[in-house]
Measured scan of single mutants.
Amino acid sequence: RADKQHVLDMLFSAFEKHQYYNLKDLVDITKQPVVYLKEILKEIGVQNVKGIHKNTWELKPEYR
């Protein structure tokens, strides 16, 4: 399990490339446990629960 700041850096870097990611792809990118990753994502992102981007994560507007 990596340092939180290191995980945040990896996530922000990923979100610079694409606006939406599913959790599986973010786990592959960060190599972090799902529960730990979700904890961090809830602080900086929102999970889309409907629409064409259903079940994906994106950054909260203040982090874009």
Rank of each mutant, 00 (worst) to 15 (best):
R1N: 02
R1Y: 03
R1V: 14
R1T: 15
R1C: 09
R1W: 07
R1G: 15
A2E: 15
A2R: 15
A2P: 12
D3F: 06
D3T: 12
D3E: 07
D3G: 11
D3M: 10
K4W: 06
K4E: 06
K4D: 05
Q5W: 05
Q5E: 11
H6M: 15
H6W: 12
V7C: 08
V7G: 01
V7L: 12
L8H: 09
L8G: 01
L8D: 00
D9E: 12
D9V: 06
D9M: 08
D9P: 03
D9Q: 14
M10A: 11
M10H: 04
M10C: 08
M10D: 05
L11R: 00
L11A: 00
L11K: 00
L11F: 03
L11V: 11
F12T: 07
F12I: 06
F12R: 11
F12M: 15
F12E: 07
F12C: 06
S13C: 10
S13W: 07
S13F: 07
A14P: 00
A14S: 09
A14F: 11
A14M: 12
A14T: 04
A14C: 15
A14V: 07
F15M: 03
E16D: 11
E16A: 06
K17N: 05
K17C: 05
K17A: 07
K17E: 10
K17S: 06
H18S: 12
H18F: 03
H18G: 09
H18Q: 12
H18K: 14
Q19Y: 02
Q19V: 05
Q19L: 04
Q19T: 13
Y20N: 06
Y20A: 10
Y21T: 03
Y21A: 08
N22R: 13
N22T: 13
N22P: 07
N22F: 11
N22G: 11
L23C: 04
L23A: 03
L23P: 01
L23E: 15
K24E: 12
K24A: 11
K24R: 14
K24C: 08
K24H: 09
D25Q: 10
D25V: 04
D25K: 08
L26F: 02
L26Q: 00
L26G: 01
V27N: 03
V27Y: 04
I29L: 12
I29R: 05
I29W: 15
I29N: 02
T30Y: 02
T30L: 03
T30D: 00
T30S: 04
T30C: 07
T30W: 02
K31M: 11
K31Y: 03
K31A: 08
K31C: 11
Q32L: 08
Q32M: 06
P33V: 01
P33T: 03
P33S: 07
P33D: 14
V34S: 14
V34P: 15
V35C: 14
V35P: 13
V35S: 12
Y36W: 12
Y36H: 12
L37Q: 01
L37K: 01
L37W: 00
L37N: 00
K38S: 11
K38G: 07
K38E: 12
K38H: 06
K38A: 12
K38N: 15
E39K: 11
E39C: 08
E39V: 04
E39M: 06
I40Q: 03
L41F: 02
L41Y: 01
K42G: 13
K42D: 11
K42P: 08
K42L: 12
E43I: 03
E43S: 05
I44S: 00
I44L: 03
I44W: 01
I44Q: 01
I44N: 01
I44M: 03
G45E: 01
G45Y: 01
G45Q: 01
V46H: 13
V46Y: 11
V46F: 12
Q47T: 08
Q47V: 10
N48I: 10
N48Q: 15
N48M: 07
N48K: 15
N48R: 12
V49G: 14
V49M: 12
V49I: 13
V49K: 13
K50G: 10
K50R: 11
K50N: 13
K50A: 13
G51P: 05
G51D: 11
I52K: 14
I52G: 14
I52Q: 14
H53I: 14
H53F: 06
H53M: 09
K54L: 08
K54E: 14
N55V: 04
N55C: 08
N55Y: 09
T56H: 13
T56L: 11
T56A: 14
T56F: 06
W57G: 02
W57C: 03
W57I: 14
W57Y: 07
E58Y: 07
E58S: 11
E58V: 08
E58A: 14
E58I: 04
E58C: 14
E58F: 13
L59S: 02
L59Q: 02
L59R: 02
L59P: 01
L59H: 02
K60H: 04
K60D: 03
K60P: 01
P61E: 15
P61D: 04
P61Y: 04
P61C: 04
P61S: 14
E62N: 12
E62D: 08
E62C: 07
E62V: 07
E62W: 09
E62I: 11
Y63A: 09
Y63P: 04
Y63H: 13
Y63Q: 06
R64L: 12
R64F: 04
R64V: 11
R64E: 08
